[in-house]
Design a protein around this nucleic acid. Structure first.
Length: 783
DNA sequence: TTAGGATTCG
């Protein structure tokens, strides 16, 4: 038997192998040697799902780590297993187990060593006479890198942890548990001797548990960065408080925190050097992620400085550029997030000698950094922050005010005292995805940041190319809209409106006119759905129409025979109100892609559930079961949701096909899940969102009505997104207010440059000429 | 011990 499972008893050190086999060190492997009677041994630290190669051969890949060479630079080697061996191995291999391969082939990799991986990989198959031995261990302890930088892996037998669901907690017990973070206060200095963090968890039982966590060491508290993170607590004490269960740290408390995003790497955040982590736990996290995706709202009050409004509370991810002592009860943080706040921001006066941070940088970013005044209990923590670090400041309050000597009001940023609503400051590591994104942004505006203050000082002090004006201009270009009006035909000369009206159609003109008025005044009424096949226009269905269709299909139960096919994976559960929901996740290469790339089909969901899923996943298609396939719902409902956009099909021109036709797209190398492509394979004639408006244009010679028929080009706002996006609605309103400022006299209205074309519309009795705006876009510095 | 979620003095 080519794959053998060996059990190692406690204390047994030798692995019983055939005596002719000689051990080869993982570090000494070389291409071209005869390895028929040699074996390598290592610990499985990673394995990939079993797949099939193009010719149908089964293929299984894992990463082996050498436990004996703890300080080795080269750590992992890939082992590629083919054929039946691949199938057998995939069934029994678990992370942390000892893996032995005899009779392997060494292949040198074409590229240099990366990620600390080995310069070779191993190939193993029955055909080449290989043998595999797998030694089962019950539990793995992983020891994280020590301060010396060496990695150590220690294996021993340990008791299995039991995790208690949140609805089974009992007063006076000490338990282990998993949960999704529903609310948290980042660690702050308590009134006692410790740091404190308050964390509210929830799990699939829908029961909440608020935990009060204390530790004198900041690092020992969970590293939670946002709602939706997943935590694992060990040895937390449960008590009853005010009739509810409450968690509190007890001796030996330990925690792991994971990103709650489906598909994100499962890398625990912890300060503890030793922790246990098994495959089953990976599964627990994946399940919690999927559950949380439709049950937890993570849309926090995050904002960029460019998007802040007066009188709001928001979370800011930012770079600490300077800090200063103000007085005993307040402290100043000067931060930047790469964008410019559109309001005049306040500057807190401080003594120059009290201001810490790179002076050159502070001067360069003078009009971009914002002053955040933190109070009371936050002062001590703020004082300890390192310049150059990345922060998330939770629940900053923006206040509009004006000083006595100022004509215009400014905006102030306060982090008030107390910890209500999770108010506080957290330091983010460089590995945090939001920090990575921020760094990319800072770099894009010419600020390669550095954690190292000294190198930052020298970089900026020596820099000559880079000054305030350059940066401001760059930011203006980045953040403001451009200034053009015509997108084509700039060589045409202007025609007066009187001449346009007196000419025969069809023709094209360039005009210079003022917008006296427009319809509809309620801008959302300008959005319609257009079928380019039958040229019909219709109103956008409302949510009640959708609800009705969903309710109609709720009576259809999911057909289990249609679950878990070759191209999708299905999950079913029952909701608290006894509804059954089934989600079919479309796979790619046998795996579930990241949620932002995942198309899913849902049976039995409510409007709210579908809406939540569409925020998280690339595409959501509501379906119902028939006897032999999944099918789309009635076309009064959207057949596809992407983000906040609902896509509809034309009832007249569509011939819906069964959902299995989607599998052709799923099989593509990189499915793009474009609505047009999805519509095409499903036999749907896609309706397009379009703005339809009537502009009354005037110049010195006369007036005319011109229609705007615009998908996206004129406002630079997709018509498809306007109905669900308040910011875009505001932007459109601002644009219209600039084109046609309310309450302004005709003489004070701005000029518009437009291209219009005339066309004839005939009915039985008369011929009428209409005008349509084309190849024109809004001047972008208007918003 | 501390906090026990539930904004805003400055």
């Amino acid at each position: 038997m080519p794959v053998q499972l060996l059990k190692i008893a406690k204390g047994q050190s030798e692995i019983p192998l055939p005596s002719h086999l000689q051990k080869e060190n993982l570090q000494n492997l070389q291409e071209g040697c005869d390895n028929t009677n040699r074996y390598v041994q290592g610990i499985v630290t990673l394995s990939y799902p079993l797949t099939k190669l193009g010719d149908g051969t089964a293929f299984f890949k894992l990463v082996l780590q050498d436990p004996d060479n703890l300080s080795a630079q080269i750590n992992g080697i890939n082992v590629l297993i083919y054929g039946k061996m691949a199938e057998d191995c995939s069934k029994i291999i678990r992370h942390g187990e000892t893996f032995i391969a005899a009779g392997f082939k060494v292949i040198k990799l074409p590229t240099a060593i990366e990620n600390g991986r080995h310069g070779c990989h191993l190939e193993v198959s029955e055909e080449m006479g290989s043998a595999i031995y797998v030694c089962e261990t019950e539990m793995v302890h992983i020891i994280l890198p020590f301060s010396s930088g060496n990695k150590a892996y220690l294996f021993s037998v340990a008791p299995k942890y039991v995790y208690t669901p949140l609805n089974h907690l009992k007063d006076g017990t000490i338990v282990n548990l998993y949960g999704v973070v529903k609310f948290f206060k980042p660690p702050y200095i308590s009134k006692g001797t410790d740091y404190c963090s308050v964390v509210t968890l929830v799990d699939q039982s829908n029961v909440k548990l608020t935990c009060n966590l204390f530790n004198g060491n900041l690092d020992s508290l969970p590293k939670i960065y946002k709602v939706g993170d997943i935590v694992r607590f060990h040895r937390i004490k449960i008590r009853e408080y005010n009739g509810q269960m409450q968690g509190i740290t007890s001796g030996g408390f330990a925690s792991l925190t994971f990103d709650g995003t489906i598909g994100a790497p499962i890398v625990p955040r912890t300060s503890s050097k030793v922790y246990t982590f098994m495959d089953e736990e990976q599964k627990t996290i994946e399940e919690l992620r999927i559950w949380a995706a439709s049950n937890i709202s993570v849309s926090g009050p995050a904002a960029k400085l460019s998007g802040v409004q007066p009188m709001q509370f928001f979370d800011l991810t930012c770079h600490l550029v300077g800090k200063a002592k103000v007085d005993g009860s307040s402290f100043l943080l000067k931060v930047w997030d790469g964008t410019k706040c559109p309001y005049l921001t306040w500057k807190v006066p401080v003594e120059a000698k009290d201001l810490e941070g790179d002076k050159v940088l502070l001067r360069q970013l003078k009009d971009l950094v914002v002053d955040i005044l933190v109070y009371d209990n936050h002062v001590q923590l703020a004082e300890s922050l390192e310049i150059g670090s990345f922060l998330r400041i939770y629940s900053i309050h923006t206040k509009q005010a004006s000083a006595d000597n100022e004509d215009v009001s400014h905006i102030e940023f306060h982090l008030h005292g107390g910890t209500c609503y999770g108010r506080g400051i957290g330091v983010l590591p460089e590995s945090n995805p939001d920090v990575k994104e921020l760094k990319v942004f800072l770099e894009s505006v010419g600020l390669a940041d550095s954690q190292n203050t000294e190198s930052m000082c020298s970089t900026y002090a020596d820099s000559t190319f880079y000054n305030v004006t350059d940066l401001e201009l760059h930011l203006q270009r980045c953040q403001q809209l451009s200034v053009t009006v015509l997108t084509d035909h700039q060589d045409m000369s202007n025609t007066e409106l009187k001449t346009v009206r007196n000419s025969t159609a069809p023709q094209q003109y360039r005009i210079r006119a003022k917008l006296r008025t427009y319809k509809p005044q309620k801008l959302h009424q300008s959005v319609k759905l257009h079928c380019s096949k039958c040229n019909s226009l219709q109103e956008v269905p409302n949510r009640d129409d959708f609800k009705l269709v969903l309710r109609g299909s709720a009576s259809t139960t999911s057909n289990p025979e249609l679950h878990n096919t070759s191209w999708y994976e299905s999950v079913t559960w029952t909701t608290q109100d006894q509804r059954e929901i089934t989600i079919h996740f479309v796979k790619h290469d046998e795996m579930l892609p990241h949620p932002e790339d995942t198309l899913l089909m849902i049976e039995g969901g409510t409007l709210r559930e579908i809406w939540k899923l569409s925020k998280r996943f690339k595409c959501v298609i509501p379906v119902r079961s028939t006897e032999d396939d999944l099918e789309l719902l009635d076309l009064s409902a959207p057949f596809l949701l992407q983000g906040s956009v609902k896509y509809y099909g034309c009832k007249q021109c569509s011939t819906p096909k069964p959902v299995r036709y989607l599998s052709s797209l799923a099989a593509e190398q990189q499915p793009s899940w474009e609505p047009t492509e999805i519509a095409q394979v499903l036999g749907i004639e896609l309706l397009q969102y379009v703005f339809i408006m009537k502009f009354t244009l005037v110049d010195e010679t006369g007036a005319l009505n011109a229609y705007l028929f615009d998908y996206e080009k004129f406002f630079q706002i997709p018509a498809s997104e306007i109905l669900t996006n308040n910011l875009l609605q505001e932007r459109m309103q601002m644009a219209m207010d600039t084109l046609c400022p309310p309450g302004r006299k005709l003489g004070d209205l701005p000029w518009l440059e437009c291209l219009i074309k005339s066309y004839n519309v005939r009915d039985e009795t008369k011929n009428q000429v209409y005008y349509q705006i084309f190849d024109t876009t809004i001047a972008e510095d208007v918003v």
